[in-house]
Design a binder for these strands. Structure first.
Lengths: 338, 338
DNA sequence: CTGTTAGCGCATTCAT
DNA sequence: ATGAATGCGCTAACAG
């Protein structure tokens, strides 16, 4: 059990051929006689040979690996996204190395550095800060094909694939309006992330565009706890608005929990919407009306963008915005849709 | 932007020293004059040099990498677990490669093979099938230090770290009994996984031990949908039991959702408990009383077991069972605890 | 303190 | 069709 692993040399020796022949036989790329090929394969199998991807990688100048850096792997949204990414990459024969930045810029820089040193062929990154992530992400993009996912760094000339946040917020607001709301409040992430900025800007624009009353919105982090805290704040502030548009499903879940604990009814007393379309939306009670991200399309698009960048490193960068959809559920619908 | 990356040679040339000196200067392991060290560092920085971990890995016989194979990365339970693992490994200077088996034995075999070929220094695996995963996991364990996590393969002589499922189920059952339940039904995962088997066995043993009436339990997969389905089945079957012990939080969430849609009240009409202690438990309404897994301890223990195995490959294998705790919330408590 | 050299495992070019 | 030789980038002996 302590034997160092079998190498081409040993297989070659055992099979009575040269190391080159073994390599050829096993990879099947080059011409080898049927007989030897079979023989070699058998010997290799019998010896329990396994290619050493490190050796191959060194020779090839790279392993077939893609890296991805996310803020929090335990967030269901990123879990889902990574799940899809892995799927698409697998098809291209790539393995995925995952790194968690803990939403910390220093750690993010560190993890990106690690991926570069690993000579991954491409990197996906969800930047943890719309501004402070600039240096690390820019530097990485200079060294390896890189695609920003979900969030992006302001003014960074690099590919990006994400959802159309403006459209998503608009869908949510217009929906609650169609359900009779007038006073609508946004409870969402702060300006640290591009997503937070975009959703806020879109919300304010929509409120103005629909001539709705200006409410005082609440901003914080994309956490369950923030949702609860924000809801408590709104309760203290006075009469509840007609609807609360939350920045994501997690926040929405927190909002609903706090509201109900305070004896308020959703959607009767106040409507609530989420954003992302994670499984959290289905676990909430009432189930959450939410803006659904097209996870699979995002992953596919991002993979394609990365491949494009690998093929043509100097092509002009592209910003992809995918359209979200609205999934209507009980949190905005008094009468359960049958 | 298309420049192949800078190598030690180039740095050496530019700095007017030998390649070995550069290596030493940069790694600081060996004695180099203050002056040259500084000079080299500066040149390297200026050229944008980054070690090539593939080269180093080949030389060292391994990269500082650990692999982990889980059934579904999008499941919050595994997200949380991976999060903690990454944390502990980081401290040891290890990077983590994640692979998703999709709960499929073939894919699992494939992913394990990839990790071996990558010459990772260790592997964590959550086997997708208590029996069918045997060959792939056993073969992998023969080649590299391996620790089974959460689930294990039956009769496989390999390290394992997981929660004490028996104790967890007992905690849940005794708790609902203390809340006045008599008729208790288990809705949990089937016998495909060791976890499913253990929770079922523990439940049946507890029911017998407490002289409770034997109910017909429901088994399926650890999915939200299964929880809903099971609840519908129970509703059709006749009068609801006093309590439903769910196999995990996801199933519990599904159960609660379906019950409430059918007009039943939790915990008044029926109590419900979960298992795992994921964020789902806090999002449910009412919040879920659940058996909490000690995520951080599990990750730490698993990491230690792996390191132990790396140091002493032939040591007798060890099965670690960590004690869960019960977190009581509204799903079993009529009067909200203040 | 620093330079020279060898070789980790592999794929490939060039002979044969 | 096969073998011999080369070098990917790096670190660790070994000299000096």
């Amino acid at each position: 059990m302590k034997k160092a692993s079998v190498t081409l040399h040993e297989v070659a020796a055992a099979a009575g051929v040269s190391i080159a022949t073994v390599s050829r036989a096993l990879n099947g790329k080059d011409r080898v006689s049927e007989r030897t090929a079979e023989h070699v394969a058998q010997v290799a199998e019998q010896l329990g040979y396994r290619v050493n991807l490190i050796g191959r990688g060194l020779r090839a100048g790279t392993g077939a690996t893609i890296g991805v850096v996310v803020p929090v792997i335990s967030n269901p949204f990123y879990g889902e996204l990574i799940h899809r990414l892995e799927d698409h990459l697998q098809r291209g024969g790539f393995d995925l190395v995952i790194a968690d930045s803990h939403g910390d810029v220093d750690r993010e820089r560190d993890r990106l550095r690690m991926l570069v040193e690993r000579r991954v062929e491409g990197v996906f990154v969800v930047p943890s800060d719309a501004e402070l992530s600039f240096d690390a992400v820019a530097d990485t993009a200079r060294r390896v094909p890189l695609v920003q996912l979900d969030r992006h760094v302001i003014d960074l000339p690099a590919d990006f694939v994400g959802v159309d946040n403006g459209r998503g917020i608009e869908l949510a607001v217009d929906h609650v309006l169609s359900r009779g709301a007038r006073r609508v409040v946004l409870v969402s992430g702060n300006d640290v992330t591009s997503v937070g900025r975009e959703r806020r800007a879109a919300f304010e624009a929509t409120v103005r565009g629909r001539s709705l009353p200006q409410e005082e919105n609440v901003f914080g982090e994309y956490l369950l706890e923030f949702g609860e805290e924000a809801a408590r704040m709104l309760l203290e502030r006075g009469p509840l608005p007609d609807a609360i548009v939350a920045g994501d499903d997690l926040v929405a879940a927190g909002v609903i929990a706090a509201l109900k604990r305070a004896g308020k009814r959703v959607p009767v007393d106040v409507q609530v919407t989420g954003f992302d379309g994670t499984m959290l939306a289905d676990v909430c009670e009432p189930r959450l009306t939410t803006v659904v991200q097209p996870f699979d399309d995002l992953a596919r698009e991002a993979t394609e963008a990365l491949v494009r960048r690998m093929d043509e490193p100097d092509a002009p960068y592209v910003l992809s915005r995918l359209a979200p959809t609205l999934r209507v559920a009980e949190s905005t619908t008094p009468a359960p849709p049958r």
